[in-house]
């Protein structure tokens, strides 16, 4: 099996978008391009309003990813759990496609008897540890998120610690929205670990609008930009996971 790269956008937000394109549509676009969108909703005063909840769920659903709503204190654990779950989900999609090719059109892992399923899962687990992973982290820094940002930073450092214990390579990039002049600001370009995450992260000026849709769109552009440059260097190196799930 060719060694591929899993591509994920991890959106950390606490509510509803109110500016620009529909984030659910942008998540759908991402999925079409082989990028999974995961969403973590950070609870505000122990609740998230119904509309925000629905949006968080829909973005992840449409983006082929995983969503989870948590209290701020639980963030670290959740960030890594969501990322991992989404990886497994993507890999399962890949394995399911292989199964269909081998066993016929309508066979998925779930259709196998539990004993066989266990053997197939070994493959998924193996891949989970060895596959390369690119995560673009998209952080909502609108006013209501302000006091949660130190925790977000800690959670991201923790995520890089967890993922770097894997055998496969990781690359992280961090974007924040709303940006000062544009919708989105790039805080960090692709890097193997997040130790260098700037301390200005928690001092970002935060505005009132929440352009989640445009932020996902911009994040997606960053993936394609990177891919075209890398494509020149390693021809079709990561085509394998492109259409995953």
């Amino acid at each position: 099996m060719k060694q591929g790269t899993i591509k994920q956008i991890l959106l950390i937000t606490d509510g509803c978008s109110n500016e620009g394109e529909d984030p659910v549509a942008m998540a759908a676009l991402a999925k079409e391009q082989g990028v999974t969108v995961n969403v973590i909703g950070v609870m505000k005063n122990d609740t998230i309003d119904e509309q925000g909840m629905k949006e968080i769920e829909s973005i992840a659903e449409q983006g082929g990813g995983v969503s989870q709503v948590v209290y701020t204190e639980m963030l670290s654990q959740t960030v890594q759990m969501v990322t991992r779950k989404a990886m497994t989900q993507t890999l399962q999609g890949v394995v399911n496609r292989e199964l269909k090719q081998i066993l016929g059109s309508e066979t998925e892992m779930e259709d196998l008897p539990p004993e066989k399923r266990g053997e197939v899962f070994e493959v998924v687990e193996e891949l989970n540890d060895t596959v390369n992973l690119d995560v673009l982290i998209l952080v909502d820094t609108s006013a209501s998120m302000k006091y949660k940002l130190p925790t977000v930073k800690e959670a991201l450092l923790d995520l890089s610690l967890s993922l770097n214990a894997r055998t496969g390579n990781n690359r992280f990039s961090v974007f924040v929205f709303p940006g000062k002049k544009q919708f989105v600001n790039k805080l960090m370009d692709w890097t193997p670990n997040l130790d260098t995450l700037p301390s200005i992260f928690s001092k970002l000026s935060s505005g009132g609008m929440t352009p989640t849709g445009p932020a996902i769109k911009e994040a997606l552009r960053h993936f394609t930009k990177k891919r075209s440059i890398r494509g020149l260097l390693t021809a079709n190196g990561d085509e394998y996971f492109e259409e995953s799930v």
Partner: peptide, 24 residues
């Protein structure tokens, strides 16, 4: 052994306390 820890709880996780990696 050799893979990355699948599940953990912060208080009992050396990574959380800054005392080591999450490699199994």
């Amino acid at each position: 052994i050799g893979r990355s820890i699948k599940e953990f709880t912060e208080f009992f996780d050396r990574g959380y306390w800054g005392l080591g990696s999450r490699r199994a």
